[in-house]
């Protein structure tokens, strides 16, 4: 299982990469692996929407499960990844890279309090077998 150092992680298996006042959000390798083949991705927010931490931003669906995705951080949505909507299998192939879901910006800075770091997330995943 892959975990990227330097990213932040939520208990719902989303990751956040922070660069200045911008953050990129996606779902983790652990999440894609337990869902198996992803067949559908819906992003339910669009550019300009204001999101709070834990707001629903979309759904990821495999043949055996559908999982809601929440943003772990607050901000204004500045981009939604169109290519992952067209190619849901990207999530299985590259969950931390090409399969990012949204980018948000927050001029007051990205608040990552309450999120796990890579080490903590690794322990969290191992605890779930």
């Amino acid at each position: 299982m892959n975990i990227i150092p330097g990213f932040f992680y939520s208990k719902n298996d989303e990751w956040v990469e922070v660069k200045g006042t911008k953050a990129t959000v996606g779902i983790t390798d652990f999440a894609q692996n337990s869902l198996s083949d992803i067949v559908f991705v819906e992003i339910s927010v669009s550019e300009g929407d204001h999101v709070e931490a834990s707001d629903l931003i979309g759904t990821v669906e495999s043949v055996k499960a559908a999982s809601d995705v929440y943003t772990p951080v607050a901000g204004v949505v500045v981009a939604a990844n169109e290519s992952v909507i067209d190619n849901p299998e990207l999530i299985n192939a590259d969950p931390f890279g090409k399969a990012w879901l949204i980018q948000v910006e927050n001029e007051d800075g990205i608040d990552t309090s309450g999120l796990m770091n890579a080490e903590e997330y690794k322990t969290y995943c191992e605890g779930r077998g």
């Binding site: 083949d37 067949v39 559908f40 669906e61 043949v63 299998e89």
Partner: peptide, 8 residues
């Protein structure tokens, strides 16, 4: 059956 194909 190929269930992934059916859904995709």
């Amino acid at each position: 059956m190929d269930e992934v194909k059916a859904a995709k």
